Amino acid sequence: MKVIFLKDVKGKGKKGEIKNVADGYARNFLFKQGLAIEATPANLKALE
């Protein structure tokens, strides 16, 4: 799953980066902790 990092995550990505991560890791950790959001077209446009 492609995500946009909202904060730096050690070993995974830095704020503003778009990367592929495992679906479960994204849903169960990154999204719940507020560290990333899904890289949807609307979210990508908002990032610009």
Results as ranks from 00 to 15, higher is better:
residue 37 I to D: 02
residue 10 K to G: 09
residue 45 K to A: 15
residue 48 E to N: 11
residue 35 L to P: 00
residue 26 A to E: 13
residue 40 T to M: 04
residue 20 N to K: 14
residue 12 K to Q: 15
residue 14 K to S: 09
residue 37 I to L: 10
residue 30 L to I: 02
residue 34 G to A: 08
residue 36 A to Q: 00
residue 38 E to N: 04
residue 4 I to P: 00
residue 25 Y to V: 08
residue 23 D to L: 14
residue 5 F to K: 00
residue 17 E to K: 03
residue 10 K to I: 13
residue 11 G to R: 04
residue 47 L to E: 06
residue 34 G to L: 08
residue 1 M to E: 04
residue 5 F to E: 00
residue 29 F to Y: 15
residue 13 G to F: 12
residue 13 G to Y: 12
residue 34 G to Q: 09
residue 36 A to E: 01
residue 18 I to H: 02
residue 14 K to F: 12
residue 48 E to W: 07
residue 42 A to W: 03
residue 24 G to K: 12
residue 46 A to Y: 12
residue 29 F to T: 11
residue 44 L to H: 05
residue 6 L to A: 02
residue 33 Q to Y: 15
residue 42 A to R: 09
residue 40 T to Y: 04
residue 28 N to F: 09
residue 12 K to Y: 15
residue 14 K to L: 13
residue 9 V to A: 04
residue 36 A to V: 06
residue 26 A to P: 01
residue 48 E to R: 11
residue 33 Q to E: 14
residue 43 N to V: 07
residue 25 Y to E: 08
residue 44 L to R: 07
residue 29 F to G: 05
residue 36 A to W: 01
residue 20 N to A: 11
residue 16 G to S: 04
residue 33 Q to S: 09
residue 2 K to P: 07
residue 43 N to R: 07
residue 15 K to I: 10
residue 37 I to Q: 06
residue 28 N to K: 12
residue 7 K to F: 14
residue 40 T to F: 05
residue 48 E to K: 10
residue 37 I to S: 03
residue 20 N to R: 14
residue 6 L to K: 02
residue 18 I to A: 03
residue 25 Y to N: 07
residue 20 N to H: 13
residue 14 K to R: 13
residue 26 A to Y: 13
residue 19 K to V: 12
residue 8 D to S: 09
residue 6 L to W: 01
residue 20 N to S: 14
residue 35 L to W: 11
residue 17 E to L: 02
residue 20 N to G: 07
residue 36 A to D: 00
residue 27 R to Y: 12
residue 13 G to N: 03
residue 46 A to E: 11
residue 19 K to D: 03
residue 9 V to W: 04
residue 24 G to N: 14
residue 17 E to A: 05
residue 3 V to M: 03
residue 13 G to D: 02
residue 34 G to N: 11
residue 13 G to S: 04
residue 38 E to G: 04
residue 29 F to W: 13
residue 27 R to H: 11
residue 33 Q to L: 15
residue 47 L to D: 04
residue 5 F to L: 07
residue 16 G to R: 03
residue 21 V to W: 02
residue 36 A to T: 00
residue 10 K to A: 14
residue 28 N to S: 08
residue 46 A to W: 15
residue 45 K to D: 10
residue 12 K to L: 15
residue 19 K to G: 07
residue 31 F to N: 02
residue 17 E to R: 02
residue 35 L to I: 07
residue 29 F to L: 10
residue 28 N to W: 10
residue 21 V to I: 09
residue 5 F to M: 04
residue 36 A to K: 00
residue 45 K to Y: 08
residue 18 I to Q: 04
residue 32 K to L: 14
residue 47 L to H: 10
residue 12 K to R: 14
residue 23 D to H: 13
residue 34 G to F: 08
residue 30 L to E: 01
residue 7 K to S: 11
residue 6 L to H: 01
residue 39 A to K: 02
residue 6 L to F: 03
residue 43 N to E: 05
residue 1 M to P: 05
residue 4 I to W: 02
residue 30 L to M: 04
residue 4 I to V: 08
residue 10 K to P: 15
residue 26 A to F: 14
residue 33 Q to G: 08
residue 3 V to W: 01
residue 17 E to I: 03
residue 40 T to E: 03
residue 23 D to I: 15
residue 9 V to R: 01
residue 19 K to I: 10
residue 37 I to A: 07
residue 17 E to W: 04
residue 12 K to D: 07
residue 19 K to E: 04
residue 11 G to D: 09
residue 19 K to P: 00
residue 21 V to D: 02
residue 1 M to I: 15
residue 8 D to M: 03
residue 9 V to Y: 04
residue 48 E to I: 13
residue 9 V to E: 01
residue 20 N to P: 08
residue 43 N to A: 11
residue 3 V to S: 00
residue 20 N to Y: 15
residue 33 Q to K: 13
residue 4 I to E: 02
residue 48 E to L: 14
residue 36 A to I: 07
residue 39 A to M: 05
residue 25 Y to L: 08
residue 34 G to K: 09
residue 23 D to Y: 13
residue 42 A to H: 10
residue 17 E to S: 05
residue 41 P to S: 10
residue 25 Y to K: 07
residue 9 V to L: 07
residue 27 R to S: 07
residue 40 T to D: 07
residue 39 A to P: 02
residue 1 M to G: 04
residue 21 V to E: 03
residue 42 A to Y: 06
residue 28 N to R: 10
residue 17 E to P: 00
residue 30 L to T: 00
residue 29 F to N: 08
residue 18 I to F: 03
residue 5 F to S: 00
residue 32 K to N: 12
residue 40 T to K: 04
residue 2 K to V: 12
residue 27 R to K: 13
residue 40 T to G: 04
residue 7 K to I: 12
residue 4 I to M: 07
residue 8 D to N: 10
residue 35 L to R: 03
residue 27 R to M: 11
residue 7 K to Y: 12
residue 24 G to M: 13
residue 12 K to E: 13
residue 16 G to I: 01
residue 42 A to F: 06
residue 47 L to S: 07
residue 33 Q to W: 15
residue 7 K to Q: 14
residue 8 D to Y: 07
residue 7 K to L: 09
residue 19 K to T: 08
residue 25 Y to R: 07
residue 18 I to T: 05
residue 12 K to I: 15
residue 29 F to A: 08
residue 43 N to L: 06
residue 47 L to M: 13
residue 6 L to N: 01
residue 25 Y to W: 10
residue 1 M to F: 08
residue 34 G to Y: 07
residue 32 K to T: 13
residue 44 L to D: 04
residue 18 I to M: 06
residue 30 L to W: 03
residue 2 K to M: 15
residue 26 A to D: 09
residue 12 K to S: 14
residue 13 G to M: 04
residue 28 N to H: 12
residue 38 E to P: 12
residue 43 N to P: 02
residue 26 A to N: 04
residue 21 V to Q: 03
residue 5 F to W: 02
residue 44 L to A: 05
residue 17 E to Q: 11
residue 2 K to W: 15
residue 34 G to E: 07
residue 25 Y to G: 05
residue 36 A to F: 01
residue 3 V to F: 00
residue 38 E to I: 07
residue 13 G to V: 06
residue 48 E to F: 10
residue 46 A to V: 11
residue 15 K to Q: 10
residue 11 G to V: 01
residue 47 L to F: 14
residue 13 G to R: 01
residue 17 E to V: 03
residue 34 G to T: 03
residue 33 Q to N: 15
residue 43 N to F: 06
residue 46 A to G: 10
residue 37 I to G: 01
residue 28 N to T: 08
residue 4 I to F: 06
residue 30 L to F: 03
residue 45 K to S: 12
residue 39 A to S: 04
residue 23 D to A: 14
residue 25 Y to D: 08
residue 7 K to M: 11
residue 38 E to K: 08
residue 30 L to V: 00
residue 2 K to S: 09
residue 37 I to M: 11
residue 35 L to S: 04
residue 40 T to S: 10
residue 22 A to I: 08
residue 9 V to P: 00
residue 3 V to P: 00
residue 45 K to L: 14
residue 27 R to F: 09
residue 25 Y to F: 11
residue 40 T to V: 04
residue 21 V to F: 07
residue 32 K to W: 08
residue 24 G to I: 10
residue 44 L to E: 06
residue 6 L to G: 01
residue 6 L to T: 07
residue 14 K to Y: 12
residue 27 R to G: 04
residue 28 N to P: 00
residue 11 G to H: 07
residue 43 N to I: 06
residue 8 D to K: 05
residue 20 N to E: 15
residue 26 A to L: 13
residue 22 A to G: 10
